[in-house]
Design a protein around this nucleic acid. Sequence first.
DNA 1: CTACGCTTTTGCAGCGCTGCAAAACACAGC
DNA 2: GCTGTGTTTTGCAGCGCTGCAAAAGCGTAG
Lengths: 343, 343
Amino acid sequence: MRREVTLRDVAELAGVSSRTVSNVVNGYANVTERTRERVQRAVDELGYRPNVLARNLAQGRSGQIAVVVPYLDTPYFSELLQSVIRAARVSGYNVLIDQTDGDPEHERAFIAHGSRRLLFDGVIFSPLGLDQQALADRDRTLPLVILGERASDGSFDHVGIDDVAASRLATEHLIDLGRRRIAAIGDQPYATGEAAQRRTRGFREAHAARGLTPREELIISTPRFNRPDGARAMEHLLDLAEPPDAVFCYSDLVALGAIRTIVSRGLRVPEDIAVIGYDDIEDGRFSNPTITTISPDKEMIATTAVDRLLLRITSESPPPGLELRAPFKLVERESTTGRVSPR
Amino acid sequence: MRREVTLRDVAELAGVSSRTVSNVVNGYANVTERTRERVQRAVDELGYRPNVLARNLAQGRSGQIAVVVPYLDTPYFSELLQSVIRAARVSGYNVLIDQTDGDPEHERAFIAHGSRRLLFDGVIFSPLGLDQQALADRDRTLPLVILGERASDGSFDHVGIDDVAASRLATEHLIDLGRRRIAAIGDQPYATGEAAQRRTRGFREAHAARGLTPREELIISTPRFNRPDGARAMEHLLDLAEPPDAVFCYSDLVALGAIRTIVSRGLRVPEDIAVIGYDDIEDGRFSNPTITTISPDKEMIATTAVDRLLLRITSESPPPGLELRAPFKLVERESTTGRVSPR
DNA sequence: CTACGCTTTTGCAGCGCTGCAAAACACAGC
DNA sequence: GCTGTGTTTTGCAGCGCTGCAAAAGCGTAG
């Protein structure tokens, strides 16, 4: 394999210094048109391509951002990632992906001072079990944007929707349909993450706002927000003496699992039990029945996260850590209204 | 921000040369226990972390592999990616992800000689529209493993299941259930990729093997293998004078879309129309009904792809390009048998 | 003609590590 | 004590680029 073409080779051919070639390649301002043309010709003739590794070392940055999610195969995350990758590419950044399987140790390692530092210039992080201690111990020189779980302590940005308000909206929707025995699937009272608790709070607030009291035995905890957990929780609910007539699921996957259980027991959604989900993943638009859900603006979450992270990376003094709220809306589909709805 | 600790700093403290520190850090053999200990102590005391960028430049490799998929939010790919990331991490490689949106130009750019070369040491590529020309023009110094579409020309490895045999098995399953008007959704007769054609071939072979002739008007082409395409194709089929009594869908997503259409027209699956899918994604294990499907061994596909790629990266002379076949099996669920089946 | 300020180009050091080959050391045998 | 062999350590160059500061060029004013 013959040696790669370097800046020096181009410089020699063009009869200028290698620094000038660098200036041309990087589009710096102060280069005369004549020089630029001459260099460009040499670049083209030799087929020169900058060596990214060398540039990285010289600049002390990698041009990469890492995105860390618990599970890559969760549709919510893969849909989000898709937008993150697009947004990053627009700014010339590559995206390195890692999944933690929700393992707190792994999560902690990722933002601690680590050997992988410098491999990425910043991190967009969607933690599950990250506790305050891990956040406090983290590498503070590493630009960080957190999605979902943790409120900002001022040293990083947090992007997400207002979970309490969204959950309240979802629950009120069920109440307003006339349902009175409403279950909630997905609480995690002992988790270090906060998203589940915020949803439960919204669930309670909705009841309070309508002068109702939620039944505690209908609030079901699950380890994760996936289909099997939703299916299991629903089985438990159906085995109660007085099963619910509606369920607020903390993710669409949970809703899909719950619906599966309901249907396989010969009950109907929404006639017997209305179900509402959270996330608005594509599955819910094609399932039987289609799922009413809270739809966060994922595109905005992704672009906001990337923009803030790049700002953090490029700015001299670290900008203040912000709480950034993306909009969300309630999308009514068959699983609560029974009406066939447009996708 | 204070300067990072370098090899030289450690060397100074330990009273050895920086090269020796490097040897210790990298676990080379010929270092006496005494020296190793002394150096290790210095490393710990200073909290030294190797600078990945510098190492990359010196070694001329990045320790990263790129995985290129058409759509990240397609469950088949995200499930596969999950396994690829795990397998790569075991060998100390990071995974850079890119999605092409199926754009042939983007796909071509990725394997052509490019400025991003050196950012990754090899590529695992799942192309959609890559043609022979693009493959021929590619950067041949870039280790490459292709998933799915393209058979190997000997200069790269190809990992996948036997699509013809799998499709034949799927179709025979429908025939053996007594169905005679069997449709196929997902053909792409003019695509540059080969997967769709191979599935259609298996579909035809199954008919031939049973002494039947497939009805051409029941073989439906779709631009992609997703839910909306499946739903649309099914609408077309139901509008025919003689609709099918079974459908072989070229992906589970297509099957989900098709089932959605069937159910929303008031028909039943499988009583009126049996549906079989392809890929065995989690959605199909929780949908209503659950989906009978061809289940490729994704874990094996992922680990095989990573192993072969790393072999290609590390070996002196390029190994021969192989055709590697992963096993698959037929998983019977409700959408064809009507029986409630274990997950 | 010289001085001055501005634009363009250059030279060099150095980012922090590893490859290579030579040097130093250790030990055994004569 | 000296030689030879094998092990351990070292020094240096260099990966290919960019930051920095100095040098060169260039035009205008005095």
